[in-house]
Amino acid sequence: MMKCKKNIIIIVMISILVFSLGFGANAKAFRVAVIMPSSINDLAFSQSMYDAMVAIQEEMGKEEFQFVYSESMFVVADAAAAIRDYASEGYDLVIAHGSQYGSSLVEIAPDFPNTSFAWGTTVNTFSDQGITNIFAYEARSEEGGYVSGVLAAKLSQTGIIGVIGPIETGDAKLYVEGFKAGVLATKPDAQVNISWIGSFSDVALASEAAQTHINVGADVLTGTAQMVVGAIGVARQRGVLWFGTQADQTSLAPEVVVANQVYDWTVALKPMIQLVREGTRGGSAYVLTLANGGLKIVVNQEALVRKTIQDIIEGKIDIEL
């Protein structure tokens, strides 16, 4: 009888071992849910996060890393409901990709102590409120903004540069200020005109803002957030240079997009995932910078060459020999 029991135990042990070998990868897959304010193909903020998810999945494999997402969650109450749903479904990490979701996270996170949450763009993990399962992430978008500003100042013939922003907050504000600082450091007498649209989605108003910038003499434009596609269209039509940010916008207007600051959130997400796997649920903030590779500048040579040739043809550039 004793022997029989022993045999059973051994069989059970072996089958557990076999099971964990065969299906272990699947059981241990890291599952992430993302809530995004706009669509995954907005060529801006939401797309930058989606691209990071895809990149991590490609690197870790579909067995090791799985993600789901809810997009166009511009209504914060809907987003909060989605965050709660994902947390209840047992995802390892729930990412609320937008600074508007912070107050919802403070409400929800304490109810799910075994789930990790992350949000951005901010460095506030709410650890001062005793919450231990929230990560934060931010992009130092002023760094790439500064680089673009320096280039813009060099390229502008009129010395007038137009900037189109959504709402004066978050990474948009940082980008705009960094860009302006870059221009003025390079060309102190340049004029940087800034207009805010008051919305992340009003494409028509962004387009008219671009028209107005060009009408007052701007020959280089930049802007941030997903409604700038309207402005890029105008830049393309009127042959004015464009500097992009958040995602690579070159495909929209390869003739005029000079450079883009691209966010690579994998730099923040990978250490986050590592910590969660080791049992730490939150408490740290990650910042994308040029130094850590989270910010990249993607230059489109074609636009530069084209613009220079055009300026020589039109006599805007005087080559002094």
């Binding site: 907005d42 028509a204 387009s207 596609v229």
Partner: peptide
């Protein structure tokens, strides 16, 4: 008039409540 004359672009919710 938005997508093929004034803006020449389409994205989700292009009209933004117009």
């Amino acid at each position: 008039s938005l997508s093929i004359a004034l803006l020449n672009v389409f994205q989700q919710n292009l009209t933004n409540g117009m």
